[in-house]
Nucleic acid binder design. Structure first.
Lengths: 119, 119
DNA sequence: CGGAATCCCTTAGGATACTG
DNA sequence: CAGTATCCTAAGGGATTCCG
């Protein structure tokens, strides 16, 4: 959806199709590091920024922040700022973020059900 | 995963994490039109290329083919070529492709469970 | 410490034209 | 009809540097 798509849904009765809604759902997960972060946070874990950095060495600061902030804006991640002299910021999942688990599991099961053609 | 990631998994014992495996699963669905096509094909429907084109006016031939071929290579879609003078090619889902349905449903339910912050 | 800002390159994907 | 082939733009994301 860059240009030619042009926001088709300007009509009230043009309710989003199933495909559209799944697409929206997937948009929340798009981003090179979202899933990696997500899995670090699953289970109610609360990690501070530097801990996430250490846990995911391959990610750059920029990306880590960007993905975290997006997920925060999406309501998947909660950001907790402790106002102290050496800044301290922690991240954890929201309830809705936690609720992703079963859906990802379904996806996992589906992928595993494949009879690898070339693998 | 463009350059700096560098194929981390060269060690036999470096089994993919849950995050990695979900990521792999999602890769099958990535592509601007895969889901739209998928939903046209769900339910055992068999459509020929031109029918898909008409059903999804916004997609270009190039993209339609590209996405179909990728899904074919991935084992999600089956391609049936009828060797006739005016070419006729039909597409339908494989069993594994069909099996995606519940997983997408789980995703949908998750998305709907959100208490829209800004909607 | 936790970020914001900048630069740069790779890639997905769109438009268009041609072919068996 | 069902594709290829070519060109081009926009967005994603990496490296690096600077800031409170």
């Amino acid at each position: 959806m860059t240009r030619t798509h042009e926001k088709v849904g300007y009509l009230p009765e043009s309710k989003p199709s199933a495909a559209d809604r799944v697409e929206q759902a997937l948009k929340f997960l798009e981003g090179r590091w979202k899933l990696v972060i997500l899995f670090r946070l699953f289970g109610g874990k609360v990690l501070r920024f530097s801990e996430l950095e250490k846990a995911i060495p391959a990610v750059s600061q920029k990306m880590l922040i960007q993905q975290l902030r997006q997920m925060e804006a999406d309501g998947i991640v909660r950001r907790i700022v402790h106002h102290q002299v050496p800044p301290k910021v922690e991240y954890c999942l929201t309830d809705w973020g936690q609720a992703l688990c079963p859906a990802l599991d379904a996806l996992l099961k589906w992928a595993e059900a494949r009879e690898h053609p070339a693998t």
